[in-house]
């Protein structure tokens, strides 16, 4: 049970942090190998690229859980509570619809990758496998979105679902680029 609970809390975060660490190590190895040992590493660029995509999708799922995605809530918050709640229902429904659409089209896309396999130039791995992250990522995001509603309902269905209500400064978090 403990393991499951930990995974529920930290699964995406852990995978994302691991992917980010691999990216950093791959990039620095490329520099060191070229400059210090005068050899060219063939695997670093592809490895880093795959990890980047996985890190983004895992991070995106983490962002659903942590209410970190960029969304504009000024309009919703200026509405009366009931109206605002219905509006956010609609918004989340649209979001869920997009996730379902993405799972569906990613499935079709992966089917094409499976039918016409291609292999990455330096690692030689079948492109199908890393790209399964599309279905996994949008699947996780959908699950996390439903989870926020379950928690919201369990906690008395007050305020707006999927919002941080503890401090006044809601949802609109820092996004650093």
């Amino acid at each position: 049970m403990g393991v499951l609970r930990w995974l529920e809390k930290h699964f995406e975060e852990a995978l994302c942090c691991i992917a980010l660490s691999i990216i950093a190590v791959a990039v620095i190895s490329q520099v060191l190998a070229r400059y210090v040992f005068e050899i060219a590493l063939h695997w670093t660029e592809e490895t880093a690229a795959i990890c980047m995509v996985w890190a983004v999708y895992m991070g995106a799922s983490l962002c659903v859980r942590e209410r970190f995605h960029i969304r504009i809530l000024v309009a919703v918050q200026s509405l009366p509570t009931r109206m605002g709640r219905y509006t956010i229902f609609m918004a989340d429904l649209a979001w869920a619809a997009f996730s379902i659409l993405m799972i569906r089209v990613s499935w079709d896309y992966l089917a094409v990758l499976w039918k016409f396999p291609s292999h990455s130039p330096s690692l030689g791995i079948n492109e199908f496998y890393p790209q399964t992250i599309l279905v996994i990522g949008y699947g996780l995001m959908l699950v996390r979105l439903i989870q926020t509603y379950v928690i919201w309902y369990r906690d008395g269905a007050e305020g707006l679902p999927g919002m941080l209500v503890e401090d006044g400064d809601v949802a609109d978090e820092e996004h650093l680029f």
Binding site: I72, A94, W95, A97, M102
Partner: peptide, 28 residues
Amino acid sequence: IGVPLFAAVGLTTALALFLIDIPFTLLA
């Protein structure tokens, strides 16, 4: 209405693909 920006862009793109009959797999 508060759809997260990436999903709002995504849904708009899906509509744009639909209007000129290009497969949705472009999104994938």
